[in-house]
């Protein structure tokens, strides 16, 4: 009959109206500035640069390889290499960025820069309150503001950070072991040379082939051990434990 549908509908809306006063779970609104829900671990908003330790300058993991700059789809990263080098976490000398800017108004939060970075240097943040008072200069976020400590990364993405930390620790241990082995081999070769034996042995030949760059955790296959960071984009599962051949 005409009108029954209307009455049914009005009963439904009345139930909603009254129910929103009585039942808590009907009213799902979170009144944002006062109330907030904790960020989900998988959330991502905008990239930041990770540094180890307390000093953002010294501990910065980024080596200014500019892969992220090239890969960023909307081209919102700008990097200038510094001429000075600094030791990375295993003590190898590496470049560092002099300027590292990301334009927050252009970034589309695609996480590609994170995927391609071979040095675990850039990660996604969960902070979404990125509004600025200056709509030109203010939207270009500079290195000092982008740098955030590893402890912060551990806080916002615990699972991811644990994997990365384990990864880097393994790298470091391997690099140290290699350094010790190298030193031992060198010492042996030197002592052999000093013994006056006529062998024109080069120390390098005695030593094992040069290892992959120690700070290169993303290389998964031992066969491409000579590959530099340039091939790094092939590795996507970089949270896996690296399987370097020795």
């Amino acid at each position: 009959m005409l009108g029954t549908g209307l009455i049914k509908g009005m009963a439904e809306t009345a139930r909603n109206f009254v129910g929103s006063f009585l039942e808590e779970d009907r009213l799902t609104t979170v009144e944002y500035p006062e109330e907030r829900i904790p960020a989900k671990e998988a959330a991502r908003s905008f990239p930041f640069l990770v540094f180890d330790g307390d000093d953002a300058e010294k501990g910065l993991r980024c080596v200014a390889c500019q892969i992220c700059e090239k890969e960023c789809p909307p081209q919102c990263i700008f990097i200038l290499k510094d001429t000075a080098k600094k030791p990375d976490f295993v003590g190898k000398m590496q470049f560092q960025p002099k300027v590292f800017d990301i334009d927050v108004s252009v970034c589309m939060s695609c996480q590609i820069c994170v995927e391609v970075c071979p040095f675990e240097a850039i990660k996604m943040d969960v902070d979404f309150e990125l509004s600025r008072f200056d709509r030109f200069e203010g939207l270009l976020i500079h290195k000092d503001e982008l740098s955030k400590p590893n402890s912060y990364f551990r806080k916002i993405h615990p699972t991811d950070a644990a994997a990365v930390d384990a990864n880097l620790a393994a790298e470091k241990a391997k690099a140290e072991a290699k350094a010790v082995a190298d030193a031992a081999a060198k010492a042996k070769a030197a002592s052999a040379a000093a013994a006056g034996l006529a062998a024109p042995a080069k120390p390098a030949a005695a030593a094992p082939p040069p290892p992959p760059t120690p700070a290169d955790p993303i290389l998964k296959s031992a066969s491409s051990s000579t590959a530099g960071p340039g091939l790094a984009e092939t590795g996507s599962g970089k949270t896996h434990a690296p399987a370097h051949g020795s």
Partner: peptide
């Protein structure tokens, strides 16, 4: 406010 409540909003 009424429409909001009908749609389970504030």
């Amino acid at each position: 406010k009424g429409l909001g409540r009908i749609q389970n909003r504030l």
